[in-house]
């Protein structure tokens, strides 16, 4: 992280938006993982996936509640989660993709877990103490998530012909969504300069190295990266997010202000 700041005056609203975007990454992926609850291949994996889902949803709560406080306590974490529509969501697209089959879920999870471990390790050094504290908690969770997902990639990639083919197809299908993980706009760049945000482009080389070495061990090919899709941080989403939010937000939309 670059602490030689030429812009110490990072706008408060920029920090709020940054925290909301990180919360959106966590909430959308956590919600996706929760779709496996009661549907996983077997009981032990069902519980394990649900645990991971809860880790992500817990992160979303921390990021949202911090952004709510930082912007003046007009919105709490529930308002931020339940009362924004697609275009206001700022998650990276990879997080909102449907769970697909188990190979799709694990390919996405592995790629995000490698990214998260790198990302939260850096965010722990943030000049923003709350973000750094959330990161310190999250990085421990992510290391465990990675241990799990990495093992599945090796197990399935280097498994039967069918598990290998399905794993390879899953990586090919999701690969184009990974470029966005390492791209930032001007506002985020100014937060990076202020030592608050993580320099995501700088994470790419390590991420690629790690992913490639695991794929190789799993006898899988690293996709060639000929196509890419981006737009999540600008609120330009895939068609899938609307369906996700429809389910996630149904109760608050149908019964505004409902508490339980």
């Amino acid at each position: 992280m670059n602490s030689n700041s030429d812009n110490k005056e990072a706008g408060k609203q920029d920090i709020v938006n940054y925290a909301i975007a990180l919360g959106d990454d966590s909430l959308t992926l956590g919600h996706r993982l929760s779709e496996w609850s009661s549907n996983a291949p077997f009981l032990e994996e069902d519980l394990a996936l649900s645990n991971v889902a809860l880790d992500f949803i817990g992160r979303a709560m921390m990021f949202y509640s911090y952004s709510g406080e930082a912007e003046g306590a007009e919105r709490n974490e529930d308002d931020i989660a339940y009362l924004r529509d697609c275009r206001e969501y700022r998650n990276l697209l990879i997080c909102e993709l449907p769970i697909g089959d188990f190979a799709d879920t694990m390919a996405r999870q592995f790629l995000v877990d490698v990214y998260d471990v790198g990302f939260y390790t850096e965010l722990m050094k943030s000049a923003d103490e709350t973000l750094a504290a959330i990161a310190a908690k999250a990085v421990k969770e992510s290391r465990y998530h990675l241990r799990r997902s990495e093992e599945w990639i090796k197990r399935l990639g280097d498994g039967t012909d069918e598990s290998h083919d399905r794993m390879q197809r899953a990586f090919n299908d999701v690969w184009g969504y990974t470029h966005e993980l390492f791209e930032v706009d001007k506002t985020e760049q100014s937060l990076i300069n202020a030592g608050i945000a993580v320099d995501r482009p700088a994470l790419k080389a390590d991420w690629e190295r790690y992913v490639q070495s695991v794929l190789k061990e799993a006898t899988l090919d690293t996709p060639d990266g000929q196509w890419s899709i981006r737009g999540g941080r600008e609120g330009m989403h895939t068609e899938h997010l609307g369906y996700l939010l429809a389910e996630l937000q149904f109760m608050q939309r149908a019964y505004p202000g409902l508490e339980w």
């Binding site: 009981l43 032990e44 519980l47 394990a48 241990r147 799990r148 093992e151 197990r155």
Partner: peptide
């Protein structure tokens, strides 16, 4: 579980 390594992780999760 498939093997000891996975059993250890599932033990943690379950």
């Amino acid at each position: 579980a498939e093997d000891h390594e996975q059993a250890m992780e599932y033990a943690r999760d379950v």
